[in-house]
Amino acid sequence: MSERRLADLLAMWRIRAFEEKVRDLRAEGPIVGSVHLCIGQEAVPIGACDVLEPHDALFATYRGHGWALARGVPPQPLFAELTGRASGVNGGRGGSAYFTAAEHGFHGENSIVGAGAPIACGAALAGRFDGSGRAAVSVFGDGAMNQGAVHEAMNFAAALSLPVVFVCENNRYSELTPIADMVRTPRLAGRAAAYGMPGHRVDGNDAEAVRFHMRDALEVAREGGGPTLLECVTERLAGHYIGDAETYRQPGELERIRRREPIARLREGLLADGVPAADVDAVERRARAEMDSAAAAALDAPFADPATAREHLYA
């Protein structure tokens, strides 16, 4: 049991170390443009992706670096993508908000809020005809729950009994606005009932809880039971984007979030279970070393070649 949790800790540390490295590179200059970090939300992708099959399709958002890593995309091509290298996972075409790595069952980030949900329905629909048994996962935020495309997708998936798991990462904010100001009831999982599908509110700071609900939802989906909505309640420790002044935070809010964030929580749990502190802390060092060397290797590679800028537009 503590072995699995130690593995979760490493997996979450890999995401956090990646994101913190991204933050440094953005401050130092090699990364330009808008970047959305998932620091504080690592338990959701780690718990969810653990129970996916390689042929399942996952559609994430611009806050998707952690989802890409959790799907098994190696960090070096991600750093290379972020820094505009030819060796980037999308050759520099995608950037931070638009990674895709289909070979890892990561069918992409998306920087249009809610846009991935109907596409996930289609990936699931295709599985009905290609014999793959594929399930599709659509990830989006709490704010995206108010986007028309997401409503349509949920009903579409429910009406057609498509094997889709809708994973809502409820981090309580859409950009600078609290979700509580934008909905009458902030219990978003409750909406599932309106579409006739199961909906669960999950502790999104606990990878094991996410894993448990995801496994269940996938089982239902694969057996023809249709979609499920998982509202994973979490919080972001970073701003909406790098550079966000976070003026909307309440006094003491970040301290409170820090006490509940998934990595600190799991670390404490492991220590309480008697796992030696040296073993626990070695995990962080290992993750940071991996990300440092991946970033360094990415930065060593040449920039995307302008002569290729027009390639891949048409078949």
């Binding site: 520099g92 075409r93 908000a97």
Partner: peptide, 14 residues
Amino acid sequence: DVRMPAAPTLAQAL
């Protein structure tokens, strides 16, 4: 007539 790439070296060429 092309999509817009994120990498600055590519975008500058367009």
